[in-house]
Simulated scan of single mutants.
Amino acid sequence: MKAQIDENIAPALARALDCLVQDIGHQVVHVTSMHERGTADTWILSKAASFGVDVHVSHDYHHKSQDERDAITEGNLIVFVLSKSWSPHTFFEKASRLVHWWPRLLNACSTLRRPGIYIVPWRSESRRFERVG
């Protein structure tokens, strides 16, 4: 599986996750390694499949824009959106929590309906990802 991390999440986090998943045959890239900074989300999402991307992780609420939902459908993506409760936390808190969530995200990809948009809650007691699109 290849996942891309959106521009609104630090590239260093994408590199760290990539190091952690390489040995199990996965890849994590930051969108800026494939597209210029500021590239429209609709373009990034619709072209994901052509870059071999299966999963997009973001802090943006892509389900609010019909154009972005259409692009997710075109790219046949699973999009994980970090819930608003992630916002007030520091970089290292977010990094730690995303590493904690990553195995669940990987496992969920085999069972979640695609294309789809799913919310990743801050609290890890929740076992399910809420589908929003």
Rank of each mutant, 00 (worst) to 15 (best):
H63W: 11
S96D: 12
W102F: 14
D54G: 00
T111W: 00
V120W: 02
A108L: 07
E74H: 10
C19F: 15
A10D: 15
S46Y: 11
S50K: 10
R37A: 15
A71G: 07
R123D: 15
S87I: 13
G133H: 10
L105V: 07
A49Y: 07
D23V: 14
A71Y: 04
A14L: 07
V53S: 06
A49M: 05
G116P: 04
R114S: 08
E68A: 14
L77R: 07
K64F: 13
L106E: 11
L106A: 11
N107C: 06
S96Q: 11
V55C: 05
S58F: 02
Y61A: 10
N8Q: 12
H89P: 02
H26D: 12
D23Q: 13
A10Y: 14
R15C: 02
Y61R: 14
K84Q: 15
V81C: 10
E93Q: 15
I5H: 01
D41Q: 07
T73P: 00
K84L: 13
E7C: 12
V53Q: 05
H30T: 13
H35P: 04
G25S: 10
I24Y: 01
V79G: 02
T42S: 15
A12S: 12
R15G: 08
H100M: 08
F80A: 08
Q66K: 14
E36I: 00
R97Q: 13
E130W: 06
S33I: 05
Y61W: 00
H59R: 15
W102V: 03
L13R: 07
G25V: 01
I72Y: 04
I117R: 03
S50M: 01
D54A: 06
L13D: 04
R113Q: 14
I117L: 11
T111R: 09
W101K: 09
T111Q: 08
S46M: 09
P11K: 12
V99W: 03
S110N: 14
D6T: 03
R123I: 02
L98V: 08
T111N: 07
S50R: 09
N8Y: 04
T90R: 12
V28N: 02
W101R: 07
I9P: 01
A95W: 05
Q66H: 12
E130P: 00
N8D: 15
H56W: 10
V120P: 03
A16I: 11
A14T: 03
T32G: 06
V120L: 09
E7F: 11
G133S: 14
T39D: 10
V132N: 04
K94W: 05
S50V: 04
H89Y: 06
G52R: 05
V132G: 02
H59K: 15
V79L: 07
S58C: 12
E125Y: 13
T32D: 06
H62W: 09
M34Y: 11
T42K: 12
W86R: 04
K47R: 12
A14H: 06
G116Q: 06
A12C: 04
E36C: 09
D6S: 14
G75M: 09
C109N: 10
L45C: 08
H89S: 05
E130F: 06
S85E: 14
S50C: 01
S33C: 03
R97G: 00
T73L: 07
R127M: 10
I24L: 06
G38T: 11
R104N: 08
V31K: 08
L82H: 02
V81T: 11
H59Q: 15
I5M: 08
I9E: 03
S58V: 04
P115G: 04
L112M: 08
L112R: 03
E93F: 03
A16G: 03
S65C: 11
T90H: 07
N107T: 13
A16S: 12
